[in-house]
């Protein structure tokens, strides 16, 4: 999701690449769930979620959007198996959304982080060059980021894009107060870039997602589940320019309202690599490897409902030009 324009004279547009942050549910459906959580709590919302998920498994839009991941993660599945796996994926996704809403409405949620993982963050923070926390749309990443400001008394910024008109509410929207971190909209061009680098210069934590392209960004190619995907190169470029280490972490949901932060890699990107995406591909590959290992452990918590393996239009047009 985190990318900035890297083509001169082409301002970063408000165009997501292949994905959308918009919910498939209607305003009424969202409102019913939010009200139910306020009145009956998490269990009541899970109970309603069950038939809703069942219905959604037959929606063409849902089938289309979930198919690319499921086909790559579970190749060769039969018709019934595909439906079963789709139901599991949607069930996990639904519970994650319910948990997020519960966190905002009632404040109930817990994030587990091992002392060893915290020590890694503390040690890296001592270098005082900022920290890039790079994650993926796995589990309940937003909830996990909400506790980062409690770990370290430093500024925390999260790069977060929301489609205009998106009905889905983040936990801090429910709470009616500002989140514990500042939000950087990646569509802001230079403003976004400045906000990111300034967070790092203050010795702060910059949270980014490494699995979705945004705007006119250039991309790195890396194998994921057997085929190449396009990943944003901005995190690695930022790390190269500022010297900040990249902490790769995932936040799988481990129970009702419970998330576990798992640090899987620390990537150091050397300086002076310029702006050629190919120079950053070794680092994007490490991220993709980590992401693949994680989805092998938590196969139903990978929430990218679009074709990650489809080449973005920018790459397709470049290929056409050179053909």
């Amino acid at each position: 999701m985190t990318s900035l324009s890297s083509s001169p004279r082409q301002p970063c547009s408000r165009v997501t690449v292949g994905w959308t942050s918009r919910s498939l549910g209607s305003r009424l459906q969202h409102a019913v769930f939010y009200r139910l959580i306020a009145v009956g709590g998490r269990k009541a919302a899970y109970a309603l979620l069950f038939p809703v998920v069942l219905l959604f498994t037959f929606k063409q839009e849902v089938i289309r959007r979930s198919a690319p991941y499921l086909q790559h993660r579970f190749p060769g599945s039969g018709h019934f198996d595909r439906w079963r796996r789709r139901r599991r994926l949607l069930w996990e996704f639904g519970k994650t959304l319910v948990d997020r809403a519960v966190a905002g409405i009632t404040g109930e949620f817990g994030v587990e982080t091992d002392q060893r993982e915290l020590d890694t963050i503390f040690e890296l923070h001592k270098e005082n060059i900022g920290l890039i926390m790079l994650s993926s749309h796995i589990g309940a990443w937003q909830m996990s980021m909400s506790v980062l400001p409690d770990c370290l008394p430093v500024p925390v910024s999260v790069v977060l894009y929301r489609d205009p008109g998106d009905l889905d509410r983040h936990y801090f929207d429910h709470a009616g107060k500002a989140p514990a971190f500042s939000v950087i909209d990646p569509s802001g061009g230079m403003s976004s870039a400045l906000a990111m680098v300034q967070t790092l210069q203050k010795g702060g934590i910059l949270c980014m997602m490494g699995d979705r392209l945004f705007g006119n960004s250039q991309e790195c190619r890396a194998p994921f589940l057997g085929e190449a995907v396009s990943l944003p190169y901005t995190p690695y470029y930022l790390a190269s320019v500022t010297g900040a280490p990249i902490v790769v972490f995932f936040s799988p949901r481990v129970g009702p309202g419970k998330v576990r932060n798992i640090i899987v890699d620390v990537i150091r990107v050397p300086s002076g690599l310029g702006k050629t995406p190919a120079a950053y591909e070794p680092y994007a590959r490490r991220f993709a490897e980590a992401m693949e290992k994680r989805v092998r452990i938590n196969p139903y918590q990978f929430f990218n409902f679009f074709n990650l393996w489809e080449q973005p239009p920018s790459r397709r047009s470049r290929q056409t030009e050179t053909a």
């Binding site: 900035l4 230079m190 870039a193």
Partner: peptide, 28 residues
């Protein structure tokens, strides 16, 4: 220059002149 260069510019000003550009509007 593009928005990615803005990142490099901020770092450049710090490296060559020892100045940290903390204010976004000022930097713009």
């Amino acid at each position: 220059l593009d928005s990615l260069d803005a990142i490099e510019l901020v770092v450049l000003v710090q490296r060559h002149f020892g100045l940290s550009m903390q204010d976004q509007e000022e930097a713009r």
